[in-house]
Computed example of a mutant assay.
Amino acid sequence: MRHCLHLTSTFVLIFLVTVQSQMLGGHKNIADHQNDARVQEVAQFAVKQIGEKTSKKLDLVKINSAQKQVVAGLNYVLVIETAAQSKKETYEAHVYEPLGNQPLKLTSHKQIDNEAAQRKTEESSERHSGALLGGYREVSTTDSEVSQAADFAAEQLSSQSNSLSPLKVEEVLSARSKVAAGKVFELKMKLSQGNMPEQIMQVEVSRSLQNELKLESHNPISSES
């Protein structure tokens, strides 16, 4: 009898630990969100609620990305594309689904521009494909995030220089990025500084989840006369 009670207690403990670990987990991408019936229902609910809160007649056009987190129920984070009188608007919506078939609740929402929406979709795709644990991928040298990282690196390098002339980014020659706890950029760029010869510099700049930039490393490659 005691042996049975011990086994039962062990199974209950394992179950509770498993549930607790799920509750403490992060958001996970929903791979086939376009064909997931529940995600579609949650998205339609979010669009209706956002429409009521913004006094707009919104129609769901597309779900760009979807994530969920196990808590005491489920938290959904959706990036949804809507149409309002032929004008497209993209929103990030957070929806909570309680346990026990309780009604859904829109906990927060915000409208985001197309560039931010594309970035969120790309990062979501990268996490799903395993890029979170992998290496760099090529990105456009004219991307706004790349330009921001390059300018930041030039400012940081200027502050470390003894020259009175600041470093100026003449051209970003190549750019790669990877998803980490935020994002990391590896850039090769051409810099000028007053009357000095132009130089090629390779830098690594990180961007935290709070959008704070940090120059992680820099390495001069060559100079041009």
Rank of each mutant, 00 (worst) to 15 (best):
K62E: 13
E204P: 00
V79L: 12
V77W: 02
V39F: 11
Q20K: 08
E52Q: 15
A131S: 10
K87S: 01
A149T: 01
T107L: 08
H6E: 10
T90C: 00
P220W: 10
I50H: 00
M189H: 07
T54H: 03
E171R: 13
I30S: 11
T18L: 12
V146C: 10
S165R: 08
L74S: 10
T8F: 13
I112A: 03
L104K: 04
V146M: 05
E126T: 00
T82H: 00
S108L: 03
S159Y: 04
A117H: 00
L58F: 02
L133S: 15
K183P: 01
S165G: 02
L132N: 11
T18D: 15
V169I: 03
T141S: 13
K214Q: 15
S9N: 08
A149E: 04
I50W: 02
L60F: 01
S206T: 09
L213W: 10
T141K: 10
F185V: 01
S223I: 09
D36T: 03
Y91S: 00
S163A: 11
H109Y: 14
I50V: 14
L132S: 13
A72K: 08
L133G: 14
I50M: 02
S158G: 12
G134L: 07
S65E: 09
R176H: 11
I50T: 02
V205K: 08
L74V: 03
H128T: 07
P98V: 02
L132K: 11
E170R: 11
R119I: 05
V203H: 06
A175Q: 04
S161L: 01
N35A: 08
C4T: 09
A153C: 07
E204N: 09
L5Q: 07
S158K: 10
K168W: 04
L132M: 14
D59A: 07
S177I: 01
L173D: 12
Q199C: 11
L74F: 11
K56I: 03
H3S: 12
L187A: 06
S147K: 14
E212F: 09
K188V: 14
I30K: 06
P197M: 01
T10N: 12
S158M: 11
L106S: 11
Q69C: 04
P197Y: 05
T107F: 06
Q34L: 13
S9V: 02
S21G: 02
G73P: 04
E170P: 03
